[in-house]
Amino acid sequence: MNDKNPIQVSEKLFKAIELLAEKGALSLTEISNYLDLNKSTVHRILNSLIFMNYVKQEEKTLKYGLSFKLCNLASKFLAHNDMISIIHPYLIDLANKTNETVHLVERYDTMAIYIDKVETSKNSIRLYSTIGKSIPLYCSGVGKAILAEKTKEELLEIWNKSEINKITDKTITSFNEFEIKIKEAQENGYACDIEENEIGVHCVGIYIDVPNKEYAISISAPKERLDENMIKIYGKYLLEIKEKLEKELS
């Protein structure tokens, strides 16, 4: 397989968009340095993106930042996902019941993508998760919930394809330890993330059985509120929702 982008210009355009999405507004020099491109090339890229209304230049600082056009595109894209509209009321009920943040993710290769999120004003904390952001399967509650449905051979294949990083000091980077956690998820019906992605944050997730797609729902909270006892309680809540949802979707 040839990993080289056949259209080099488009690659540069999207790298500029991804950079601005990650870093926020930047100067021409900063963008040039990050992308390792000369200023004249970057200037042409930015002018093209400005022409298409994906980028705007701030009048005072002259820095370049993304417009809201990408947000509009993302909203239109998500509107075509019927599963979000079906599951969203369940997320609201779960968030109200627990007063914690609830997520819906969809699997994409070795990652899970956040496609819906419900927060409550009570007990709300700022989490890493945002709609459209990805999280590795191997070290997330939602990811392990999805992977608990796989055979050992499939697990090993996904593990070998994944970019295994020590995101926090709690992140599991050994396949043997990972397999133990998957077995626990299979026994419990739900999977956990104990500070593997964010220090101080625990997560419990369940897999939703949908034809041709792989979804999972999770509850995330500070470790003080989502201790071992509450994980069991919230795990039961999730399993109840799983049963209701799968009946509705069958």
Rank of each mutant, 00 (worst) to 15 (best):
T168A: 10
T168F: 07
T168Y: 07
T168V: 08
T168P: 13
D169F: 11
K170H: 15
I172W: 08
I172S: 10
T173V: 15
T173E: 13
T173P: 08
S174L: 04
S174C: 06
F175C: 05
F175L: 12
N176A: 09
E177N: 13
E177K: 13
E179H: 08
E179K: 10
E179N: 11
I180W: 04
K181W: 00
K181Y: 05
K183A: 14
E184K: 11
E184W: 08
A185H: 03
A185G: 12
A185R: 01
Q186D: 01
Q186T: 03
N188A: 12
N188F: 12
G189T: 04
G189N: 06
G189I: 01
G189H: 03
G189A: 06
Y190S: 07
Y190I: 09
A191G: 14
C192E: 14
C192G: 01
C192Q: 10
D193T: 02
I194C: 05
E195V: 04
N197A: 00
N197H: 08
E198C: 10
I199H: 12
I199A: 12
G200Q: 06
V201G: 06
V201I: 15
V201A: 05
H202A: 10
H202K: 10
H202Y: 12
C203P: 09
V204C: 12
V204F: 09
G205W: 02
Y207L: 03
Y207H: 15
Y207S: 12
I208E: 09
I208A: 07
D209S: 14
V210Q: 10
V210P: 02
P211V: 09
P211Y: 04
P211L: 10
N212K: 13
N212S: 11
N212M: 11
K213Q: 14
K213R: 11
K213S: 13
K213M: 11
K213W: 03
Y215L: 14
Y215P: 01
A216P: 05
I217Q: 02
I217K: 03
I217V: 14
S218P: 11
S218C: 12
S220A: 14
S220L: 07
S220R: 01
A221P: 03
P222N: 05
P222F: 02
K223E: 15
K223M: 13
